[in-house]
């Protein structure tokens, strides 16, 4: 465990908590893509099935359980408790265009052709693109609430920190996981445009709005 990995995990946790708190405090999930949140719940579910088969550390198990629980809580708030505030008309990304190719790819390119390993690979590939419905929604409405941009910032920062963690682990531990690294690079690249807007607008106190 190095500092980049730890701050990456904490950044991921911060993103998840920010989103939950935003929805809970405002009693509204306006501007949030339920589809992205469903995909993240699917990502955590398929990735953390090893909770049943192997124990790594108390930290590892607790974080996995927290991520899974929070992702289901978020989906519950969006699709059940605050369903009336869900902006379904703007959440129109076709998720089958992500899930089907990602599913196919995880069968073709994986470390080991076993059910758990294929599901783990599926989750890694799916996570890298799961934010697309949310970014699509923002590009459709042309704006995002500031708190939503903080959520996106921490979510993007998490995978960027993991990239540094992987460079670190490669040099000091000889650890290299091509699947995770390639997917992590793709995932981080998807946030670059957003990072630019976040730094040039949101951090200067302006609302994130896109030109019409």
């Amino acid at each position: 465990m190095n500092i980049f990995r730890l701050t990456g995990d904490l950044s991921h946790l911060a993103a998840i908590i920010i989103l939950l708190l935003k929805i809970w405090k405002t009693r509204s999930c306006a501007g949030i893509s339920g589809k992205s949140q469903l995909l993240f719940a699917l990502v955590f579910t398929t990735r953390y099935l090893d909770l049943f088969t192997s124990f790594i550390s108390l930290y590892n198990t607790s974080m996995k359980l927290i991520y899974v629980a929070c992702s289901y809580a978020t989906v519950y708030l969006i699709y059940m408790k605050f369903k009336a505030t869900y902006d379904g008309n703007h959440d129109t990304f076709r998720v089958e265009f992500l899930v089907v190719p990602v599913g196919g790819l995880s069968f073709l390119v994986n470390h080991d052709f076993s059910p758990l390993e294929i599901l783990w690979t599926f989750s890694i590939y799916l996570e890298s693109v799961a934010i697309l419905p949310q970014l699509f929604m923002i590009s459709k409405t042309g704006e995002a609430e500031t708190i939503t941009t903080h959520y996106l910032f921490f979510l993007g920062l998490y995978r960027a920190l993991y990239l540094i963690n992987w460079i670190w682990r490669y040099y000091f531990e000889g650890f290299f996981d091509l699947i995770a690294v390639v997917a992590g690079v793709v995932q981080t690249i998807l946030y670059c445009d957003f990072f630019y807007l976040y730094v040039t607008k949101v951090l200067k106190g302006k609302k994130l709005s896109l030109p019409a």
Binding site: R5, D9, H12, D50, S54, I56, S57, N60, M63, K64, Y67, H111, D112, S114, E117, W120, Y162, F175, D177, A180
Partner: peptide, 10 residues
């Protein structure tokens, strides 16, 4: 390669 090795990450 130990397939478990990447599972220490989240």
């Amino acid at each position: 390669e130990d397939p478990k090795i990447h599972k220490d990450e989240l």
